[in-house]
């Protein structure tokens, strides 16, 4: 069953583009990545899902219910962690978490303790006095304390040190194992690569691609790097499937997608001193998407 279904969602802020005709679905139990450069429309999409802003056209459903009409009911089962966290002045961490918990009809005190322990968060301190990373931890606990069925994260890891990031990811994976669906928006590709099953790539307000991470990685792209005794004519490389060709002295590197034999045959005619062939990392594939659309 789909936990999130977004259907031709469009949002304009006056005349400014927010998102255009965004459609994708997130299945129950998956960790879904939502990736794109700054200003592409990630937050706009997420804020619409949460009922913070209203779509210009199109609709979105969460748990099969319209996210505007049934917003409060849906949000009972959503945990949200915004990219920047600011909380009421003068409140202690524990006070804020108890306030947060008071919106859900269940006792969350045990879960708060657990989460605070895992993240090494002091509940007795004032939020104003916390560092950015520690405020972020408050945000994480606040988003997870009611054991939501859907966790929505908008660029969550900024300000967390690598160790905390790891703990945070472990928490997410644990929640996911218990059945929670996760929507993770990010522009940091490595964290998406590590966590997600599928990704949607958004650029300039439009969805460019929705794909399994594994498919993206094995989409037959190979990165080639060859060193020659003498640099051959660049025209040699103009085979179908060669992209991002860069030549630096006697070294040529490029991405290739298609029948590898073609490249091998071409290279066989040349005098090679060294050769590397590898799977490109996701970063390269994404950069490729971004640039192609530009």
């Amino acid at each position: 069953m789909n936990v999130i279904e977004i259907d031709h969602l469009t949002k304009y802020y006056g005349k400014t583009r927010g998102i255009i005709d965004v459609s994708f679905s997130v299945e129950g139990g998956e960790i879904f990545g939502f990736i794109g450069p700054n200003g592409a429309g990630k937050s706009t999409t997420i804020r619409t899902l949460l009922g913070l802003i209203y779509p210009t056209s199109g609709s979105a459903k969460i748990f099969g219910k319209d996210c505007i009409a049934h917003g409060p009911e849906i949000r009972r089962q959503i945990g949200y962690l915004p990219s920047e966290v600011f909380y009421y002045d003068g409140m202690k961490v524990g006070d804020l978490l108890r306030y947060s918990a008071s919106f859900y009809r269940k006792d969350c005190s045990k879960r708060i303790q657990e989460l605070a322990e895992v993240l090494d968060l002091d509940l007795t301190r004032k939020i104003d006095d916390l560092s950015y990373g520690n405020k972020k931890k408050v945000g994480i606990v606040q988003g997870l304390l009611h054991e939501p069925k859907l966790i929505i994260l908008d660029e969550p890891t900024g300000g967390l040190d690598p160790l905390m990031q790891q703990k945070f990811f472990d928490l997410l994976l644990e929640e996911n194992k218990k059945g929670a669906t996760v929507l993770l928006s990010s522009h940091i590709l490595s964290e998406v690569q590590r966590l997600c099953d599928r990704v949607a790539i958004i650029k300039d307000g439009r969805i460019v691609k929705v794909e399994k991470i594994s498919t993206l990685k094995e989409s037959n792209y190979k990165r080639f790097k060859c060193e020659f005794t003498a640099m051959p004519d660049a025209n040699m490389f103009s085979i179908d499937g060669v992209e991002n060709l860069t030549i630096d002295g006697n070294v040529a590197s490029f991405l290739f997608r298609g029948d590898v034999n073609k490249v091998v045959r071409m290279l066989a005619t040349l005098d090679i001193t060294d050769i590397w062939a590898a799977d490109p990392d996701l970063e390269e594939i994404f950069m490729h998407y971004y640039e192609k659309e530009a």
């Binding site: 949460l50 009922g51 913070l52 949200y80 966290v85 600011f86 947060s100 919106f103 606040q142």
Partner: peptide
């Protein structure tokens, strides 16, 4: 102004409430 709107309004509560 205090940037707490995201906190409050993503809770299960209607705007009317």
């Amino acid at each position: 102004r205090d940037k707490t709107a995201d906190f409050l309004m993503t809770k299960p509560i209607t705007r009317n409430e």
